[in-house]
Design a binder for these strands. Structure first.
Length: 872
DNA sequence: ATGGAGTACAGACCTTTGCTGTCT
DNA sequence: CAGACAGCTTTGGTCTGTACTCCA
């Protein structure tokens, strides 16, 4: 099996590109900040106080130096001496301390990033991704709770009681029209008076409808529920007063602003305008229903409750507005621009301190529309399921001008998708739209509200994209949907799916594929040519690609405008050939045909030291970068080595045989890819060559991977049989060895137990409190403690001579070795048992201290040091 | 609002034949 | 004592896809 070759770059000792060094200092705050506190205890008082008094200044002032140190000088021993630079003295204190995060007040912002021309670091990206994921889950749970409250029968009762008589009549009408209720025997037409004139027109229809079988839905004027919903929305818009701000996305704000907001939220009395609307429990929710006022969000939640109260299946829909994971303007906190009250800036989680709100002290009626008036799209709304058609009707009770969007009106449903400059400014996004049903389950319905129901549409950049998880052989992936995973906890079980579910899942929630543009139809652009599968510009050819000799351009493309316009020939992709160097072809078992001329010449990529030296030498001599030729497949042929003669295997200059593909094995020979075959061949006295099947790269070296041997075909059977015998013997030897080792380990373990028991008898240590102490493992400490507790034990104090007497006490049986007995510098206590086998029972030493361990220590317990470790 | 051009970045790809100490 | 074997270390330049901004 070829050994593992790491493909990914892990670290680089070279300094990163200059751009990285030009990063704004504070961008590295998260990884560096925890280090500063370690130093506080042993740094001089000046730096200490300056750190605590003016952390921002200090961090800011040292930051440029700091980042250089961070990247160029990892040797922290030097850093300890740098007393002036508090933040560079990183891990000076040896003992463990609490990790502290000190974040710079002037936290990095998008603008800083752009000025410094640096992107967010990996860790910063991770922080945002995690924040986003956490926020999404919090919002989901919040909505699940609100949904449960919207199910409350008392809330329903409150809302039902408030309905005027007219609405009750409408409800009854709807029930009859839907066939849910039989019409009363009275001949009086079920039309309400407010539609007087229309009723005249509809009279014939109603006559007809009466001819329908009672108990059957009357669909003659469309789904009757739509009429009812429109009435309910009109009622709700009139009755519900928006008196508080709802949820919204603010973006990432500077830490200082966040801290102020949190402190304000914790310490000040709750103010909905500054801290957001708070409904602590169901009782408060009921009270809100009673008052018919609150945020737009609560308005939609109560509206959902009202619809449910009328016996209609309704879902509470929420378009989550989580903090994102990108670095666009939308993720950056933007304080209200014309704000005159600096205290309000960055202050509230609940409300944007809009000037019109803070300045206007007009009566509530005028103020009512002010909350969230800058949000052009709803965040919460209702989905009503028609009991007749099982289709979903989207209802926004408070915000949109077209509040009722039936399934058929895809454009109206797409109106819920935030778009436009106003939505941009208000940071309204669509990424996850979740509908919570009355049974407590929830399902994702984002697709319904995307324009043309096309993915990813506007969710792009705001929603966690599908993650490609590699599986199986290279190039195979499965798509991992993070949100799908999160939603699994909320979803309705497959067997409990309703007719509504089934219908929408086959229709409204089926995403459309984005319309592919016909590349041939549109005019050429650089982008279209870059991605085209049919045409290509010469400049887009990859390093390993070349044009077929004699390929004719199909047309020309003019790049640039005006004076900078430049004509370029456009070629067919079909005329592009994949090329490889002679060495690369060799690895595929092919060689260039005699007389083949390279289609392309490219600079040599030298990786190993030897190759690098060669390339440098050539570069020095010629003054030009040496090039290597690339050849197309049809310029190469299979390497067919000549058949072997007399059982002799041909070998290359390294004494082995290249066996990258099976065809490279010469006729008359066989590849036996078994380990340890070399020895067997030697034993048998047959000719062989080790088979090189690939290379392993690392440490600027290419190491051949050898898998077994190539032998003459007539020797193959002999070799395999002998190998089997050998392997069986080897296995037996290994089993015996393993058994021996197991027994040894047990023996050692039992001795250890005996020693521990003896130590306990001698010094105690059964006190659980003492055990819990930091040095409870240390028998000396325990002994000392015990003696302190019992001063009249033997009257001796805790001086060194006495300690030595304790050492001596151990010597009588399984005791500790005296200092100097073992001349190594091990910190651990070595206990000698009756069989004179040293056992390390405690070691606070690190590897470097272990390096001096004597030869008699067991390798399996004290790993042998590496050369690198010793070199340091 | 949209799309093209340009830029930056992360991750993937390509690379082609030791050295030394310890064990068996 | 010779030969086998384990362990070291895990590059770095270039390409490519993607995200993002700017600009028309």
């Amino acid at each position: 099996m070829p050994p593992f070759v790491p493909r990914k770059r892990v670290s680089s000792e070279d300094p990163p590109p200059a751009k990285r060094q030009a990063r704004p200092d504070n961008s590295q705050a998260p990884p560096q900040a925890p280090r500063a506190p370690f130093h506080l205890s042993d740094s001089d008082s000046d730096s200490n106080s300056s750190l605590s008094d003016a952390p921002e200044d200090l961090l800011k002032g040292n930051a440029s130096e700091e980042s250089e140190d961070e990247e160029e000088d990892i040797d922290w021993e030097d850093a300890i001496d740098t007393k002036t630079n508090a933040t560079t003295t990183t891990v000076a204190a040896p003992e463990l301390q609490d990790l502290e995060l000190t974040l710079d007040q002037n936290e990095t912002h998008v603008s800083d990033l752009l000025d410094g021309k640096k992107g967010p670091s990996k860790i910063e990206r991770q922080i945002r991704i995690q924040t986003h994921c956490m926020h999404v889950q919090c919002l989901l749970f919040h909505n699940a709770i609100r949904n449960a409250w919207s199910n409350d029968s008392k809330v329903h009762e409150i809302l039902r009681k408030k309905l005027p008589e007219g609405i009750h009549k409408e409800v009854k009408k709807w029930r009859i029209a839907s066939g849910l209720e039989l019409p009363e025997p009275k001949p009086e037409p079920p039309k309400s008076k407010k539609k007087g004139k229309k009723a005249q027109k509809n009279k014939d229809w109603s006559d007809e409808s009466e001819r329908l079988e009672p108990g059957q839905p009357d669909m003659s004027r469309g789904d009757p529920i739509i009429t009812l919903i429109k009435v309910l929305v009109a009622y709700w818009r009139k009755q519900f007063r928006i008196t508080a701000p709802g949820l919204r996305k603010y973006g990432y704000r500077p830490v200082s602003a966040l801290e102020t907001a949190i402190t304000d939220f914790r310490e000040q009395e709750h103010d909905p305008e500054r801290h957001g609307e708070r409904i602590a429990n169901l009782d408060e929710f009921r009270a809100t229903a009673e008052r018919m006022q609150g945020s737009r969000d609560v308005g939609a939640q109560l509206f959902t409750a009202l619809v449910r109260a009328l016996g209609i299946e309704a879902r509470l829909v929420a378009s989550l507005q989580p903090l994102g994971f990108g670095w666009t303007k939308g993720e950056t906190y933007t304080p209200a621009t014309p704000s005159k009250d600096p205290e309000k800036e960055g202050g509230s989680e609940g409300t944007e301190p809009e000037t019109d709100v803070t300045e206007n002290k007009e009566p509530a009626k005028n103020k009512r529309k002010q909350f969230d008036s800058d949000l052009p799209f709803p965040i919460y709304w209702t989905e009503v399921a028609s009991p007749i058609t099982h289709e979903i009707i989207s209802v926004d009770p408070l915000v949109l001008s077209n509040p009722v969007a039936p399934f058929t009106e895809t454009d109206l449903q797409a109106n819920f998708e935030p778009r436009g400059a106003k939505a941009d400014r208000a940071k309204q996004v669509i990424c996850y739209v979740v509908a919570h049903s009355s049974d407590g389950t929830a399902k994702e319905v984002t697709t319904r509200y995307l324009r043309r129901r096309t993915w990813p549409g506007k969710t792009k950049g705001f929603r966690m994209p599908l993650e490609k998880v590699p599986v199986g052989p290279r190039g195979n992936y499965i798509a991992f949907d993070w949100f799908g995973m999160v939603m699994r906890g909320y979803q309705r079980a497959r067997k409990s799916k309703t007719a509504v579910d089934k219908l929408e899942e086959t229709r409204d929630l089926q995403p459309n594929q984005p319309e592919k543009k016909k590349a041939t139809q549109t005019a050429d652009t650089l982008q279209s040519l870059r991605t085209s599968t049919e045409f290509v510009l010469e400049r887009f050819l990859r390093r390993e690609e070349a044009l077929r000799p004699g390929a004719e351009p199909v047309r020309t493309f003019i790049a640039g405008k005006g004076a900078r316009a430049k004509e370029e020939p456009v070629f067919r992709r079909a005329d592009v050939l994949k090329c490889l160097s002679a060495e690369s072809w060799h690895k595929e078992g092919r060689q260039t045909k005699p007389g083949a001329v390279a289609l392309k010449r490219v600079p040599i990529r030298a990786v190993t030291l030897i190759r690098k030296r060669e390339v440098d030498e050539m570069h020095r001599q010629t003054g030009e970068k040496p090039l290597q030729g690339l050849y197309a497949r049809d310029q190469t042929e299979y390497i067919i080595p000549p058949p072997i003669q007399d059982g002799r295997i041909p070998k290359n200059e390294y004494g082995n045989i290249d066996c990258f593909v099976p065809s490279m094995v010469p006729a008359g020979a066989a590849h036996v890819p078994l380990p340890g075959t070399v020895r067997v061949c030697k034993k048998l006295g047959i000719d062989y060559a080790e088979a090189v099947t690939g290379f392993e790269f690392g440490s600027k070296m290419a190491v051949p991977v050898i898998q077994g041997v190539v032998v003459a075909a007539e020797n193959e059977g002999l070799l395999r049989d002998a190998w089997k015998v050998e392997a069986a013997e080897k296995r037996k030897r290994e089993e015996l060895k393993a058994e021996k080792k197991i027994l040894q380990t047990w023996r050692k373990f039992l001795f250890g137990l005996r020693i521990m028991e003896r130590v306990r008898d001698e010094y105690g240590g059964g006190d659980p409190d003492a055990d819990r102490e930091r040095d409870s493992h240390n028998p000396f400490a325990v002994h000392k403690k015990k003696r302190e507790e019992e001063p009249d034990d033997d009257g001796a104090d805790e001086d060194m001579p006495d300690r030595e007497s304790s050492y001596n006490a151990f010597d009588h049986g399984g005791g500790f070795l005296l200092p100097g007995h073992d001349d190594d510098a091990d910190d651990g206590l070595v206990v000698e048992n009756h069989d004179q086998q040293p056992v390390s029972i405690s070691s606070g030493s690190d590897n470097e201290a272990d390096d001096g361990k004597g030869e008699d220590s067991e390798p399996e317990y004290a790993p042998r040091p590496t050369r690198r470790t010793r070199a340091r």
